[in-house]
């Protein structure tokens, strides 16, 4: 999968809504977390950001949605500097699914409808988002806190999808999943990319990236396609 990059070229894709992060530096508590990190997430493409745990993948993703600001560096979405985009608008355009899916009280439908003003859990958009996340059937009425880790991960994806993001960032989406569920999530993400969404998987599982990503990069922006092991050098 990694060798075949479908869709438009990266530069074209970025100009039409992808994410580009350049030379990001960030320190906290005297520790350098990001050291010149780079990331390109074109639309209609699955990008795997490969790095070991603790290397700064989560921090980089949080910087893209401005849950953190880097000390230095530039991040753009569709060519527009994120510092010039109102945070709530930015987070509508770029969805972020955290490693630990946090379920809100209520049903799956309530969770997915949470992000939509004036839309109830039975709305068509909610149902479509749940199905798009790979949960086919009567999932909307199920209690969210009674789902398995894998099911909650997919509800978190549905919750991000319902807002029609241009780009979806997923932090270790397979961390809490067994192999079979991971395969289902991977297939779901591929379908979403084929629908035009830019997908970025921050992941340390290179075999998973090989199966489902179009391109794989390290935190310094270098190509990770040829990496032959799960762990890759940090930035």
């Amino acid at each position: 999968m990694l060798a075949a990059v479908p869709g438009p070229s990266i530069s074209t894709a970025l100009a039409t809504g992808g994410v580009s992060a350049t030379d990001l530096w960030l320190s906290r508590g005297g520790r350098e977390i990001l050291r010149g990190a780079r990331l390109e997430v074109p639309r209609a493409c699955v990008t795997a950001l490969i790095a070991p745990s603790g290397a700064g993948k989560s921090t980089l993703l949080r910087c893209v949605t401005r849950l953190l600001d880097p000390d230095r560096g530039t991040i753009t979405v569709g060519g527009q500097d994120v510092q010039t985009i109102p945070p709530r608008e930015l987070r509508r355009r770029v969805g972020l699914v955290a490693q630990r899916a946090t379920m809100f009280p209520g049903t799956v439908g309530d969770n997915v409808a949470y992000a939509l003003e004036g839309v109830g859990p039975a709305h068509d958009r909610v149902r479509q988002a749940i199905e798009a996340a790979g949960l086919v059937g009567d999932w909307a009425s199920r209690a969210a806190d009674e789902l398995s880790g894998g099911e909650q991960a997919r509800v978190a994806i549905a919750r991000a999808l319902v807002r029609d993001p241009e780009v979806l960032l997923l932090d270790e989406p397979t961390a809490a999943l067994d192999h079979e569920t991971g395969e289902l999530v991977g297939a779901t993400l591929r379908r979403l990319a084929e629908d035009g969404i830019g997908i970025c998987l921050a992941i340390h599982d290179l075999p998973f990236a090989r199966r489902f990503a179009d391109r794989a990069v390290h935190l310094d922006g270098s190509d990770a396609t040829e990496a032959g092991r799960d762990e890759a050098p940090a930035a």
């Binding site: 949605t65 849950l67 709530r88 987070r91 509508r92 972020l96 955290a98 809100f104 949470y114 978190a156």
Partner: peptide, 13 residues
């Protein structure tokens, strides 16, 4: 913090 960031990521102020 996880729950707060989840809500912020879904567009909450």
């Amino acid at each position: 913090q996880d729950a707060i960031e989840a809500r912020l990521s879904l567009g909450d102020d």
